[in-house]
Design a protein around this nucleic acid. Structure first.
Lengths: 103, 103
DNA sequence: TCGCCTTATGTCAGTATTGACATAGCTGGT
DNA sequence: ACCAGCTATGTCAATACTGACATAAGGCGA
């Protein structure tokens, strides 16, 4: 699970569309990252749809603006757990989360 | 996220079919638990289908038998992250993971 | 321009999760 | 009964994640 180094490079070095494009990521690693990215996008969409700022959402979640920003950026130091729980807290149903996972 | 107390009670107190049945869990909390349970079942199914013991799977994952057991039990001290990465490592595709999330 | 609001990014101390280990219970074979 | 393989559960030190905070940068109306 040495995600840190690779993911850091990935984020800082180049922008990318598919997580498959960089060096040294196994298919499982890129699949994991893509799932995270997709859920992150979903969270941002859900927030915007409700017309909330990151700060407002953070207070609903009992978290902080910076952490919401990191979630939406699919930051490496944010867990899938947190994103999923946040999606549920914004009212998303498992079914909709599932759709994002598959996408 | 004071999951610990409630979840502990839940696991030790009664057995259950739906995570909705105990005291004091918000809908989001039970949805989260149900997702975890479903993914846990999926992992066990995947392992058995491959004819692997928990120990054998653990060594493929770079983890330990006890942690695999905890994953399959959807133990509170196991993250969604770990279960998802393990599913990917056993060859499951995001689409199949998504199906388990929705279920 | 100046505030004000929003988002992004870095850091840190507190907490949660991890792999590893020990151990116990169980089953099937001898 | 004994043993070997499998699974469940508890504990611990190391690591990862968390909320909070600071700060920077951008947009926008006055």
């Amino acid at each position: 699970m040495d995600k840190t180094k690779k993911a850091r490079l990935a984020k800082k070095g180049w922008t990318f569309g598919s997580a498959e494009t960089f060096l040294g990521l196994t298919p499982e690693e890129s699949a994991y990252i893509e799932i995270k990215l997709s859920l992150a996008r979903e969270l941002k969409k859900a927030r915007l749809k409700k017309g909330l700022s990151q700060t407002a959402l953070a207070s609903k979640l009992g978290s902080s603006q910076s952490r919401v920003a990191k979630m939406e950026a699919a930051d490496e130091q944010v867990s899938l757990d947190l994103i999923v729980r946040s999606l549920l807290a914004t009212g998303k149903r498992p079914r909709e989360i599932a759709r994002a996972v598959a996408k």
